[in-house]
C-alpha cells in the first residue's frame, strides 16, 4: 500500500494538460483537410476525388465541409494537387442557439457535466474514441465530465453513429427523458451527416434530422481531444471559435 502511494506520487501526472496547455503528444489527431486556394482545374480534380463530397469547388479553390469528411486522405495522397492539411483537433463547433435556448450550458454545469452516450448505429470507431476519454491519459473526470447510464441524470446527450431507423424512437425517448436544460452533442461524421450511408433505406442522414444538435464534433472518428473540445464548448468552458491552436507539427510526416 505504501509502495503504491509512493510509486504513484513519483510517477506524477501523466494525463494530458489539455485544455490548460496545448497538446504536444504525437499521434493525437489524424488531421482534416483545410480550405485551399487552387487553380480551377486542379480544384475540380481534387474535389472529384472526395467520396463523401466534403470538398467543394469554389472560385478561389476548394472549401471543406468538415461534417462530411471521413479522413480518407484521397485529397492529399497520390494526387498532383494536395489540399492544405489542418493537423489540429479542435474541430468542434457550437451551433448558434435560438433566443430561448442559450448555446452553452452555463456556469452551473462547468464543473459537473453528466453525459449520456447513445449509440445510434455506430460502427464502433466513435464509441472507441469516447471510451478513450475515461482512460488515464485523457481522463475526463479531471474536467468534471461524468458518464451516466440514465437520461434522468444527464445534462448532455452524446450521440454517435448514423441514426438508423430503429434507433430513432429510442433516441427520441432518451432525449425526452432528460431534464431541462439539456444539450445534444453529435460526435462523428456519421452522426452529423451520415457521411457515406446517406441517404439510404436504413438511415435518413444525421442526428440533426431528429434532435436539435448544439455541438457538432466532426471526424471519422474524431480523436478524443476533439470530443473533449466539444464537451468543453457545451459546458461553456471554451470560447466558441477555437482560437488557441494545437501544436501538432509531429503529425506532418504521416501525410505523404
Amino acid at each position: 500500500m505504501s509502495q503504491w502511494v509512493t510509486k504513484g506520487l513519483a510517477t506524477g501526472v501523466k494525463a494530458t494538460h489539455y485544455p490548460r496547455a496545448a497538446e504536444t503528444a504525437p499521434g493525437t489527431s489524424p488531421g482534416m483537410p483545410a480550405a485551399t486556394s487552387l487553380p480551377a482545374a486542379r480544384a475540380q480534380l481534387v474535389a472529384a476525388r472526395c467520396p463523401t463530397a466534403a470538398l467543394r469547388q469554389v472560385p478561389s479553390g476548394v472549401e471543406v465541409d468538415r461534417r462530411r469528411c471521413v479522413h480518407c486522405f484521397r485529397c492529399v495522397r497520390e494526387t498532383e494537387s494536395p489540399v492544405d492539411w489542418d493537423a489540429g483537433c479542435q474541430w468542434a463547433e457550437l451551433l448558434a442557439g435560438s433566443e430561448r435556448r442559450g448555446r452553452s450550458l452555463g456556469r452551473a454545469f462547468s464543473r459537473s457535466l453528466h453525459i449520456l452516450v447513445v449509440d445510434a448505429g455506430d460502427c464502433g470507431a466513435c464509441l472507441s474514441e469516447v471510451r478513450q476519454l475515461n482512460n488515464p491519459y485523457y481522463n475526463m473526470h479531471r474536467l468534471g465530465f461524468f458518464l451516466t447510464p440514465t437520461p434522468r441524470h444527464a445534462d448532455v446527450l452524446l450521440v454517435v453513429g448514423a441514426l438508423t431507423e430503429h434507433m430513432r424512437l429510442p433516441l427520441r425517448k432518451a432525449y425526452e427523458a432528460m431534464p431541462a436544460p439539456k444539450r445534444v452533442v453529435a460526435v462523428g461524421s456519421c452522426a452529423l451527416s451520415a457521411a457515406i450511408f446517406s441517404p439510404s433505406f436504413i438511415c435518413a442522414g444525421g442526428v440533426g434530422k431528429l434532435l436539435p444538435v448544439d455541438v457538432e464534433v466532426p471526424g471519422n472518428p474524431p480523436p478524443p481531444l476533439a470530443i473533449l473540445h466539444g464537451l468543453l464548448l457545451v459546458a461553456g468552458r471554451k470560447p466558441p471559435s477555437g482560437t488557441d491552436a494545437v501544436r501538432a507539427g509531429a503529425n506532418q510526416d504521416r501525410l505523404r
Partner: peptide
C-alpha cells in the same frame, strides 16, 4: 414542473 413518461431504457 415537466412530467414525462417513466424511463424504461427506451423500449417501445
Amino acid at each position: 414542473v415537466e412530467r414525462r413518461a417513466v424511463w424504461a431504457g427506451a423500449i417501445p
